[in-house]
Design a protein around this nucleic acid. Structure first.
Lengths: 182, 182
DNA sequence: TAGGCCATGTAACCGGTTACATGATTAG
DNA sequence: CTAATCATGTAACCGGTTACATGGCCTA
């Protein structure tokens, strides 16, 4: 999932500034399966423009730096479609929470409680975001993806809530953890 | 999720060589939420040994290079527990498939079909792996994590299978895609 | 008045991957 | 005879993050 493809995908939906691209990748419809930072967006946009895949127009604003609104070109769209045509590589999933969970017996109850509470809150956050974005979009393919996310995150949240206590129960009692710390 | 924590976690369960650590992170019980490469394992193991968090003993083997079996030390375990104590950062999830899905209308049916078929196969792979590992392990915390993975991956697979046709139906017909390519 | 939002951009850094080097053994 | 598995390690590379620079406007 390189920055370039993601930017082209976002611009294919609508013109946007670098700032808006970042927002969409972190808070928008794309955010539950991608994320990029400013440090990779701006340089990539410049490169993409130099290569003719996007164009930009500037809008001057009082106080703020000029807004550079980028738009995808036909060449950009063709390039994007070409990239979509290669079989997607396997999803990447990394979870510190699950690593902690797997070692629950080494942790104090407080640690495990904090960890799972945060995990539940994070999942709820994403779920809320998906519901919010899903409502306000009538693009069929986006809705398919939204609905996928909804389904999976709901199952995730359900499991976490139903099994919260049982994970906490696995935490080492004070004594065990204290012994290990010595 | 730095390499160091993961290595310490694996060694906390049992002594292992670098090669075995790689296997566990790519095929073992940890594999559905972590992954590291040789290029980061070996240097990290050396560093960990220099810092006193692990020790190693060598076993000479005919033909193959000496096997270096690493074991976690008390200091290593203490360090590991300390790292587990910080609230885990949010899960990272990246999916090229979902990006493709979101742009299904730009792709040919063939492309979408290949993409979702691969996604189903990948998910099934992981599910099989989880079931396999789950059976052969009686460590309660591992089972909690295994059961979590099972639940989530089953929900994922179910959605993909039930909605395969509807995604394919969203693919642009030949003509639309051909037009865009011109 | 502090902090967040809007807005762009650069440079240093870094964690981790890829590719390479080496090589015996075993299974298909 | 080929490919995979076992087994360790290095070096180049690279994609991307973090932190910094700049600064006005608006809200709590």
């Amino acid at each position: 999932m390189n920055t370039q493809t993601l930017i082209l995908a976002i611009l294919n939906f609508d013109d946007a500034t670098g700032y808006e691209i970042k927002k969409q990748s972190s808070e928008g419809a794309f955010s539950f399966f991608v994320d990029i930072s400013f440090g990779s967006i701006y340089p990539t946009l410049s490169r993409l423009e130099a290569e003719g895949y996007v164009t930009s127009r500037s809008e001057s604003q009082s106080g703020k730096p000029d807004k550079k609104i980028y738009a995808i070109t036909d060449a950009g769209r063709a390039e994007f479609i070409k990239m979509l045509d290669v079989v997607p590589q396997r999803d990447k999933f990394k979870s510190e929470f699950l690593l902690t969970g797997m070692c629950a017996d080494l942790c104090s109850q407080k640690t495990i409680e904090q960890a799972i509470n945060k995990q539940i809150a994070d999942t709820q956050d994403i779920l809320d975001m998906i519901i919010d974005r899903g409502q306000s979009c009538d693009h069929a393919a986006t809705q398919w993806v939204t609905s996928f996310g909804l389904h999976v995150k709901q199952a995730t949240l359900e499991y976490l809530k139903n099994n919260r206590e049982s994970l906490i129960a696995l935490a080492g009692d004070q004594q065990v953890v204290k012994d290990a710390a010595e």
